[in-house]
């Protein structure tokens, strides 16, 4: 790692101005992902703009009328432990809990989790000037692609590593970003972009912009007696901790009298962005969810999957995860297998 300047800005405005005026300035929050990139020689920042010293960016606020607001600097540990998140947004609490290790969650932030760079072996190795880094080729296509994308891939086949993103998208979250020209908000789902749009980036952040807040809207009638809201995050990893998803599924569902009234299904670890599954949602809408329907929803979501050669196991795995998550969210299942 090379030497760099460490800058503590006095305000968010100063942070974004510095970031946009210095081409070799990078933003640092928890630093978990950034330091890895620096140590691996993928980026060599001249200046790090530290957000940790800025006030009022690590809040978690909940009210029944406004829903949930989380500052970008809130740590994953705080999110997973927050009682309102546990109660109302289980999927997010579970997703935050599934990240890495307790030490990392104590430091890693929500903003960092959403904006982390891909884990692809080729991207992370300085010896490979791959397409993701401005090169000509995505080496995973003909090389090691066990962990790469089966959906939405091309020309780059990374998978998005975030656990919180699929969970938040399943909850219909919006993200707010701040830049030198002020703030703007968008649905979190629209924040992420496919490599066809820009192979070098995974999101719509522009020069100098940083994520400041994520907002989860309230549910329509969470209080009504016949309706229920359940959400769940399932993540398959090769070991119990400190691992990224081979595949993950976030499902958030409202049921009324056992019928699925609204549902969002999002996969992680299988595509360059958190992968929304409208086919699964359509299959379930207005119906009572049973094994067969859940399995059908899973299969339908993966119908378009194109494995690369060493990752076809992900197709079955992801379909099974959707099935299991749907059954867990619907009232009908006690212990889905």
């Amino acid at each position: 790692m090379r030497n760099f300047q460490h800058f503590n800005p006095a305000s968010l405005a100063q942070a974004t101005t510095t970031l946009s005026s210095k081409p070799d300035a990078w933003v640092i929050a928890g630093g978990i992902d950034l330091l890895g990139e620096m140590k691996n020689g993928i980026i060599q920042p001249g200046t790090l703009v530290n957000l940790k010293t800025l006030p009022n960016l690590d809040y978690i606020k909940f009210s029944e009328s406004d829903g949930l607001r989380i500052g970008a600097m809130a740590t994953l540990a705080k999110i997973e432990a927050h009682p309102d998140i546990r109660k109302h947004f289980t999927v997010l609490s579970q997703a935050a809990h599934s990240v890495a290790t307790p030490q990392i969650r104590n430091v890693g932030t929500l903003g960092g989790n959403l904006c982390q760079r891909p884990r692809c072996w080729y991207y992370r190795n300085p010896a490979f000037h791959c397409l993701k880094k401005g090169g000509k080729e995505c080496f995973s296509v003909s090389g090691e692609n066990k962990y790469n994308a089966i959906l939405g891939g091309g020309p780059v086949f990374i998978v998005h590593p975030s656990d919180c993103a699929p969970a938040l998208i399943s909850l219909g979250a919006e993200v707010t970003v701040a830049g030198p020209r002020g703030k703007r908000s968008m649905p979190l789902e629209k924040f992420f972009i496919l490599p066809t749009e820009n192979p070098l980036r995974e999101n719509r952040l522009q020069a100098g912009e940083v994520v400041t807040e994520v907002h989860v809207p309230p549910f329509h009638d969470a209080g009504s007696s016949s309706s229920a809201h359940r959400s769940v995050y399932l993540k398959v990893k090769e070991r119990g901790a400190w691992d990224f998803a081979l595949a993950s599924a976030a499902v958030s569902m409202e049921t009324n009298a056992g019928m699925c009234r609204s549902v969002r299904v999002v996969l992680g670890g299988v595509a360059p962005i958190p992968w929304r599954c409208p086919q699964a949602e359509k299959t379930c809408m207005g119906k009572q969810i049973d094994e067969a329907l859940a399995a059908e929803a899973g299969k339908a979501s993966l119908a378009q999957a194109v494995p690369l050669g060493k990752n076809d196991y992900k197709v079955e795995m992801a379909a099974n995860l959707i099935k299991r998550a749907l059954l867990m969210c619907s009232a009908s299942s006690a212990s889905p297998r």
Partner: peptide, 18 residues
């Protein structure tokens, strides 16, 4: 990694699963 004639694994405690 066998492609591009470069044989190399990601040598890190994170990627080498134990």
């Amino acid at each position: 990694r066998t492609n591009r004639n470069v044989v190399h694994k990601f040598p890190s405690l994170l990627e080498y699963k134990s």
